[in-house]
Structures are given as C-alpha cells and as structure tokens.
C-alpha cells in the first residue's frame, strides 16, 4: 500500500482525480482510496498529522506500507524554480533544530532539495533560508518513523512561491495547476518507489502461514516452539521454494510428551 499525505484540499484534488481515488467516509478526516493507493488529508501544519496517520494505521498496517508526502513549498529565487518538483533529501525542523534524512534509494531522476519545516508561513522573501520551506515534513517524518522504516517515507515538494505568499492565501486554482503539471513525474515516482516494497515481502506465503498456525494450535505449541517453527519453516521455504508443508506432518497428540516428539520430528523434516 502507498499512502499519499497532503495538507491542502487543493493539493489533494488533482491527485484524487488522477488516481481515481474514492472517498471513504468511515474516517473523520479526508481519506481516499483505490486498490493499493490511498490519500490522507493531513491538514496544514503539524497538529493533526499524528492522530490521522495513526488512525489510518489501525486499519492498514502492512510491512510494505509507504508514505509519500506531496505538497507545495516555498522556494528561493536563486536555488529553485517555481513549479518545479523536488525530492527532499534533508529535513530540518526549525523548532527543534533536528535534522532528518530520508533514504534515497529509488532512481527517481527528480531534482533534489532540502527543506526546513517551520511553524508559521514565511512571507517576507525568506531572508537566510537556503532551502525550501514547508510546514509538515519534519512532523510527518517523525510520526511515520514510529511505525515504518526510513526508506518507506518520501517527500515530494513543488515550489509554489518564493516565500512571499502565505500558503493559505495561494489560490486553489494555482495549487491545482502546480500539482496537475507534475502528475506524470509523481506517477513515475510512485511506480518506481513501489519496487522497494518487494524487499519486504515475507519469505512465508499465506498457505505456509495457515499450516504453521494449524501446527501451533493443534499441537498447542509453546511460544518458544512457535518461534522455532517459524524459523525452521522460513529455512524450509528458502531451500524448497515449491514444496508444500505436508499436512500429515502434524499428528494428533494427547500429551506434552507426544507434542514435543511430534514437534521435534517436524523440525527435523523442515531442517533436513
């Protein structure tokens, strides 16, 4: 699953239309979804980010989940171009002075920039800021990192202004058009980024897990035995990609001694 996080409705709308996402009204915040892609409206600023992301994670927690923050940011006339999209390689939180570094594994071909996350919009031209300025990135990074790994969080920022406009005063039409212009790049990035998900696919398939769970309950395995079984099963699956876990390995047992004997036997077969 890939989950787009965007702050403004004007940022979300073009993405929702392009990816044909459907609103899911069971959430108390903007949430749209189609197949393996969804979008959460996280609102402007840091306040609502954690609650919304965690609410979503209650329903959709998977090992391969990816978060992609897509939104507009302020730039500087001498180091960025209005309308250009940038992949963020460094985030500084202005408040805490902490730096965060997203992993940059995917060959995206996008230009890169760093961003500083501020609490209040910068509208005076940006003075000493040498990077992009946004209002959510550092919080998104911190919150998502509580539940996923660094390479599962990415940031795409489109420069909307040269730090001379308040984000809330930029017209919806202008934001729509900034995002619309970059939809092909966003789409390509998402597709390439998705390739990273295969590295988190589990060694054991669903059928294997059903067999393991049957063994666990029918043999009444202890916690340690269960973990040992998982480990042996992974080794078996790696060595025998096409072999089944035979049902007749699991016997009917009536005592702990019988259970332990059967368990030992299973482990021997799996590790042979």
């Amino acid at each position: 699953m890939q989950c787009i996080l965007s702050a403004l409705k004007a940022e979300s709308d073009p993405l929702i239309n392009f990816f044909k996402l459907k609103k899911d009204d069971s959430y108390s915040f903007p949430f749209y979804k189609k197949n393996d892609l969804c979008l959460i409206g996280i609102g402007v600023g840091k306040n609502k980010i954690e609650k919304r992301i965690f609410t979503f994670l209650n329903d959709y927690n998977s090992r391969s989940l990816q978060f992609i923050n897509i939104g507009i940011a302020g730039g500087k006339i001498n180091n960025s171009e209005k309308g250009e999209i940038y992949l963020i390689n460094k985030i500084k939180d202005e408040n805490s002075n902490e730096n965060y570094f997203p992993d940059l594994i995917v060959n995206s071909n996008l230009l890169e920039h760093s961003t500083i996350t501020v609490d209040k919009a910068i509208v005076d031209g940006g003075g000493d800021y040498n990077c992009l300025v946004d209002m959510e990135a550092s919080e998104i990074y911190k919150v998502c990192l509580k539940r996923v790994l660094v390479h599962q969080i990415s940031f795409l920022k489109i420069v909307s202004d040269y730090m001379d406009e308040d984000v809330t005063s930029i017209s919806k039409k202008k934001i729509n058009s900034l995002i619309n212009e970059k939809l092909p790049e966003i789409d390509t990035f998402l597709k390439k980024y998705k390739n990273l998900q295969e590295f988190k696919s589990s060694i054991l398939g669903n059928v294997d897990l059903v067999w393991i769970s049957r063994a666990r309950s029918e043999l009444n395995l202890t916690e340690t035995q269960y973990h040992q079984l998982l480990s042996f099963s992974r080794g078996y699956r790696l060595k025998n990609p096409n072999k089944k876990f035979e049902d007749n390995m699991i016997l009917k047992v009536y005592s702990k001694t019988e259970r332990n004997k059967n368990f030992k036997n299973i482990c021997e077969i799996l590790s042979a």
Binding site: F101, D103, I105, V148, V150, F199
Partner: peptide
C-alpha cells in the same frame, strides 16, 4: 554525486528505522 552536509556522521549512519539490506541496494 549529490553532496549533503551533515553535522555528525551518526546523524545519518545511526538513524533509527534503517534497513541494512534495502540500503545495500544503493
């Protein structure tokens, strides 16, 4: 290569939530 300045190498090397094998891809 893109050069990114860091205060201390541990800010990047010791980050929480890294995946050794994924990072080995690049």
């Amino acid at each position: 290569s893109k050069v990114i300045e860091v205060d201390h190498y541990k800010d990047i090397f010791n980050r929480t939530g890294q995946d050794f094998q994924v990072q080995k891809k690049s």
